[in-house]
Amino acid sequence: MVEKRIRVLVAKPGLDGHDRGAKVIARALRDAGMEVIYTGLRQTPEQIVATAIQEDVDIVGLSLLSGAHNHLFPKVVELLKEKGVEDILILGGGVIPEEDIPFLKENGVAEIFTAGTPTGKVIEYIKSKL
């Protein structure tokens, strides 16, 4: 049997066009031996959920810099639940104010990595959870 690869969806919900962070993390996860599905900019929560299901990923990483995280991150969690998916780990990243983090965690986002987090920390976190 071939060793199982961790599959991660790196998605950009919302309307901001800043994907440098998403690309950096995608690259870092690839270098850590994971298969990273990258969706490109301006994905709706519906598109992200459909992609996560079709690709059978273990993790969805959401990157957002526009400030709409309190709406869009929980929306992705909710839509996944509607489809009966509860075993995908949801992570968030980008420009997220400290005070929003507890709310996001209560709403199904497993962990938030704000700007400046070393990529090694994200990889370590993922490997500890799977």
Binding site: R30, D31, G33, M34, E35, V36, T39, G40, T51
Partner: peptide
């Protein structure tokens, strides 16, 4: 590394 970036979906949104 055995990792991959699978980016074909970007053009199939």
């Amino acid at each position: 590394t055995g990792g991959a970036i699978l980016g074909d979906r970007v053009r199939m949104s």
